[in-house]
Design a protein around this nucleic acid. Structure first.
Lengths: 195, 195
DNA sequence: AATTTTATTAAATTATTTTTTAACGTATTT
DNA sequence: AAATACGTTAAAAAATAATTTAATAAAATT
């Protein structure tokens, strides 16, 4: 009897791990889509299912990798703000927790990148616009070049609109404003949903 | 006189190229942020400034790379729908044009990925949910496992909400609906804008 | 103060990805 | 029909990136 119960417990635990693994794989794979390396994605996804803070040694055991790898990987996750160091009295090892709210995750991951993208491009656009204006006002520029400059100018102005829009999108996600427009709906089970 | 005009034309052309290059670098760098390799980003950015369709040979000359590289790079850009093959009577070489509207670009690039992400994860979530429910209804599962399963379940349900939200975000960008909420503003010059 | 624990950095190795050269197949021209 | 032009695939080479082992530094314990 004891015997049988143990077996079933093992079975349940196995099922649980298996279920988690399915989601872990999927998360890691989707992170890969945006240029997060598989190992780092897998680390995040693994932490996502941990209900208490993890040490570097925990991670290294879990993923079967070296400690320096965990150290650098976890730092990258901290850099994009989807893993945080937590403090807990007792253990003197560093402890880490994953951001589990994917809306926060989304905001951190994309919002930050969009802001960076916008800033970087706006600065290039501004520089280019100055140069192009100078070309256009220079009387000695020939017609062909002027035409190209004119076209470029028009194009990068549209591009500037886009960059500003990106910034505002990032802000509206950061502030939560966007959820007035696109509310988060309570999720019903997968069963009666055709996905 | 002829001499001087030529010099200035060269100067203008040089300035034009320089201006374009600044934006090209910036675009390539930002694409890199999302996992697009530098060469492919650079190719897209280069095409972005071409006002007429380009052949593989044009690209290879422009970037100083081999033709097969251009061939595969341009295919990847076609895969994410930000470069299109165009037809033009006359030349029997393939001709390509970049998507220049960055809102379209954005929609193609992120929208598609978000949809893929949502689909992939929802399928894993549904699978995991079934497994977890089974664990929870199994009377022989011990308490500790049940608790973990319960926590996981709650977490992935929130995750499902996020996936559905992502899908709707993608749709609202695809359909243009989002611009009612976040309108595109005419861009004023960089001068009087503090960027 | 010496030892141990922990995390990080540096150097070396391994693996992966990118790029090229070479070969191939198909279409177009002569 | 032969020759040329074009694009792609395959194999090899080169360049990058990821990972590990070894070394170092900093903190905590004994």
């Amino acid at each position: 009897m004891e015997e049988k119960t143990n077996k079933n417990q093992n079975k349940s635990e196995e099922m649980l791990n298996h279920a988690e693994r399915a989601v872990i794989n999927s998360i890691a794979e989707t992170m890969d889509l945006y240029g997060v390396t598989p190992s780092i994605g897998r680390l995040y996804a693994t932490l996502y299912f941990k209900h208490n803070p993890q040490t570097l040694d925990d991670m290294k055991d879990e993923l079967g990798m070296s400690k320096p790898s965990m150290s650098t990987a976890v730092r990258k996750l901290q850099d994009i703000n989807i893993v945080k160091k937590v403090w807990e009295k007792g253990s003197r090892k560093d402890l880490f927790m994953a951001e589990k709210n994917f809306f926060h995750y989304f905001s951190q991951f994309f919002g930050d990148k969009w802001e960076r993208e916008a800033k970087l491009n706006l600065s290039a656009i501004n520089y280019a616009e100055d140069q192009l204006n100078e070309i256009l006002t220079d009387e000695e520029t020939n017609e062909e070049i002027k035409q190209r400059a004119e076209q470029d100018l028009q194009q990068i102005r549209e591009y500037r609109s886009y960059c500003h829009w990106l910034e505002r999108l990032a802000q509206s996600i950061e502030s939560g404003e966007i959820f007035e427009f696109l509310p988060v709906e309570e999720s019903n089970s997968g069963k009666d949903n055709k996905n």
